[in-house]
Amino acid sequence: MTDHSLEMRSENLLLRPLTEQDATERYVGWLNDAEVNRFLEVRWHHQSLADVRSYVAGHDNVGQFVFGVFAEPDELHVGNFSIKVDENHRSAVMGVMVGDRDYWGQGIVLEARARLLDFIFSRLPVDKVSGGCYQTNVHAIFNYKRQGWELDGIRRADRLDQGRRVDVINFAMFREAWLDRNDP
């Protein structure tokens, strides 16, 4: 069932929690696409419709969210953001996947993430949001820097990417920084 209270819109996007109906073959195809899943842990195992349904069902939309990113004007599902909240520490971890390659380099990560940061810092008990990417994921690094996230540490040679050991670069966005950025 769709939770309409969590629906959000930005200039070109609709963001809402995924439902079982969003678990489509198109979505499964992204997860098994070697270009799309290059930096995702799902790449180690072939993904099925059942896997996606289970993943979506595993988010309670209270402390764990998976928002679909739907591009206007047709509300085409093009990717997802996950958010996992740790209420004890007032922190959250955010992940992103743009599955539809036609939308790579179109700025939707920046647009969607800005809307979600607004949501997190206005409606959730969170003071810090963390994200991260491989050092070889230059698109992601660009997006974090363009959006004003600060460096939060580097885990050296932590992951394998195409046979090479690579760093994981962690970024953080703090409540004050985000609100200050939006308050000229």
Partner: peptide, 22 residues
């Protein structure tokens, strides 16, 4: 943009003859 940034890093790596550090 992000695509340009990727191209910039690739060009730099070619110029330097090695992958860039984080």
């Amino acid at each position: 943009d992000s695509l340009g940034h990727m191209q910039l890093v690739m060009l730099l790596e070619t110029h330097l003859g090695r992958p860039l550090e984080s």
